[in-house]
């Protein structure tokens, strides 16, 4: 069947007279970006919390930017991603003394998207693994406390808090995920399935979706050609760009040698009754001479020509 709710996660690099830059380089480049996404048929748009002020600056306000999205055929701003990848004295979910500060950040984010189409507030629930380790039951429980609290604040505002787990984050294995979900309220803290991140971490995203379907709030559909079988997740200061021998982890759907079985996942989604957004993400698609526009078009081709042919009930 044709899935109606495809959104695009706001990673994009484009050529400018100053070299490769994000489309927020100026409003003209942003408009070109939105036109390309509109042409491909995306109707949802997810962005980062830290990009909201930039869009507000370019368009006058965040609601004005949402109106611009709607002029391009989007239903609006559908998701906001927030992250503290690097542990600092100010933001470390496994340290209670930083929770008030993080909570206040999310209150601001909620205020910034009040009245907009946003459904999901997607969060990277931990910092880098190497800064948190040893990862213990205690670090995970403290982290869970924070997100229960943030989720309880967001829920009455109509916002789902949902957790997106990086392969290099401090909750990454099946056991760590299970413990985290055991200590978080299913009504307040959702699961967000990033197909590539889990695969790299050696965890089957399809099995995870089956297990946590009831609290799954969304997906990042992206692929990878590689499982981290050499402890790259502990690379300091960064595993996504600096892992030895792997300059690029992420690829668009349909890539040769891709490890994610998207048709199987699609079948599972159809059977599950999930009715949220499916999000295409192309994180760092420019590495090694790649091109965001082309990667996005190729992924949408894959959606239209492969995933749309998938029928439920066959599993």
């Amino acid at each position: 069947m044709t899935w109606k709710r495809w959104s695009y996660m706001d990673h994009w690099i484009t050529g400018t007279p100053q070299g490769p830059r994000q489309p927020t380089f100026n409003r003209n480049h942003t408009e070109r970006y939105l036109r390309q996404l509109e042409t491909l048929g995306f109707t949802g748009f997810d962005t980062f919390g830290f990009t909201l002020p930039i869009y507000a600056s370019l368009y006058g306000s965040v609601p004005a930017f949402e109106r611009a999205l709607q002029d391009h055929g989007f239903v609006g701003l559908t998701g906001v991603f927030a992250a503290y990848p690097y542990a600092t004295d100010f933001a470390a979910p496994h340290r209670r003394e930083t929770h008030d500060r993080i909570f206040a950040d999310f209150e601001r984010t909620a205020a910034a998207v009040d009245g907009l189409a946003v459904e999901n507030v997607i969060v990277m629930p931990t910092n880098t693994y190497f800064q948190v380790e040893p990862v213990t039951d205690e670090t995970i429980k403290i982290t869970a406390e924070l997100w229960n609290r943030v989720g309880a604040m967001l829920a009455p505002r109509g916002l789902n808090l949902t957790c997106h787990f990086e392969f290099w984050g401090a909750i990454r294995t099946e056991d760590e995920l299970a413990l985290f979900f055991e200590h978080t309220d299913p009504e307040l803290v959702g699961f967000f399935c990033d197909t590539a991140q889990h695969t790299i971490a050696g965890v089957d995203p399809l099995a995870l979706f089956r297990r946590y379907r009831d609290r799954c709030r969304g997906f990042h559909f992206k692929d990878t050609q590689r499982v981290d079988d050499f402890d790259a997740y502990r690379t300091a200061p960064d595993a996504e760009l600096m892992a030895t021998g792997v300059p690029r982890w992420f690829y668009e759907m349909g890539t040769p040698e891709g490890l994610v079985d998207f048709p199987a996942l699609m079948r599972e989604i159809l059977d599950s009754g999930f009715d949220g957004w499916l999000t295409v993400e192309h994180d760092k698609a420019d590495l090694g001479g790649g091109n965001f526009a082309e990667a996005t078009a190729v992924a949408k081709w894959y959606i239209d020509n492969v995933l749309d042919s998938v029928r439920g009930g066959a599993a």
Binding site: Q18, F25, N26, L58
Partner: peptide
């Protein structure tokens, strides 16, 4: 107010992008 983008990245005025 947003001269870093408006001026130095050509978002406004003379649209000089470099």
């Amino acid at each position: 107010p947003g001269a870093e983008v408006d001026m130095l990245q050509g978002n406004a005025g003379r649209r000089i992008e470099r």
